[in-house]
């Protein structure tokens, strides 16, 4: 394992985040803050609490994950797509590094950005709504696992995409609907029974439920299910990403 190479890619990608801090950090923090103001402070104060948790507090975990999911995919996909687009990928592909170094460098940086973003959004939420975290260790674990998993997914999208439009297709047409319908703004048991069953096919439900459990000690599904699903998804994404890099799909002729 070439740790210097991993560190170089990681630093290079992190430098890009600081260079584009308005887009990478300020913009998602601001837009999520608007959700806290509108749905948390304004509308939320007139809504009933859910399972004993005020609505403003209830939506915090879901909104954090909404941003983390979107930004993980966006950061990781752009991180590998941009060198492909400019042609500088030749340098990475001709360097004495293996598949794992490439994945750890790019995905590590994208996940770090998401973790920083998630933390900042959490801290910002404290300005608008009262939030108490019952299981901080589990909250951090879920944040890390979710960031890494969706950064891996974003990395695959970045390799697959051959145009800027394709970079946006999956995040906009798949991930955002799944997140909104995954219980970001409501508890699954508020839905009619049929839609509750349908929702169980949405993997994001398990992520939001687990993350929410770490805040309030309660979720739509059990903690074990949530952890199991995120670990399963992480394993699938990692194995697929490694296979893609190994085969040189869309990277080498």
């Amino acid at each position: 394992m070439n740790y210097r190479s991993i560190w170089s890619i990681y630093q290079f990608e992190m430098a890009r985040m600081w260079r584009t801090i308005a887009q990478s950090i300020a913009s998602p923090v601001l837009s999520t803050s608007l959700y806290f103001v509108v749905f948390g402070s304004a509308i939320g104060s007139r809504m009933e609490s859910i399972n004993g948790v005020s609505y403003g507090s209830f939506i915090v975990p879901g909104l954090i994950l909404l941003s983390v999911l979107q930004q993980s995919i966006s950061n990781a996909s752009f991180g590998i797509y941009f060198p492909k687009f400019t042609g500088t990928i030749y340098e990475v592909l001709s360097a004495p590094i293996g598949h794992l170094e490439i994945i750890f460098g790019y995905v590590g940086a994208a996940a770090t950005k998401s973790i920083i973003l998630g933390t900042l959004i959490f801290l910002t939420s404290l300005l608008f709504v009262p939030v108490h975290v019952e299981h901080p260790f589990m909250m951090i674990l879920f944040l890390i696992l979710t960031s890494v998993t969706f950064s891996l997914l974003g990395f695959m999208i970045g390799i697959w995409a051959d145009g800027f439009e394709k970079l946006q297709i999956i995040p906009l047409l798949v991930i955002t609907p799944l997140t909104f319908l995954g219980g970001s703004f409501y508890s699954i048991d508020m839905l009619p029974p049929f839609w509750q069953k349908v929702s169980m096919a949405n993997p994001v439900v398990y992520l939001i439920s687990g993350f929410r459990w770490s805040f309030f000690g309660q979720g739509d599904v059990s903690l074990e299910w949530s952890l199991g699903m995120i670990l399963l998804f992480l394993g699938i994404c990692f194995a697929t990403t490694r296979y893609i890099i190994k085969t040189g799909y869309k990277l080498k002729n």
Partner: peptide, 20 residues
Amino acid sequence: CVDTFESVWNTVSFSRGLFG
């Protein structure tokens, strides 16, 4: 093929690190 937004120093230093 160049990293258009990077400084000359950073992009050259990156290459050295990339090769370990």
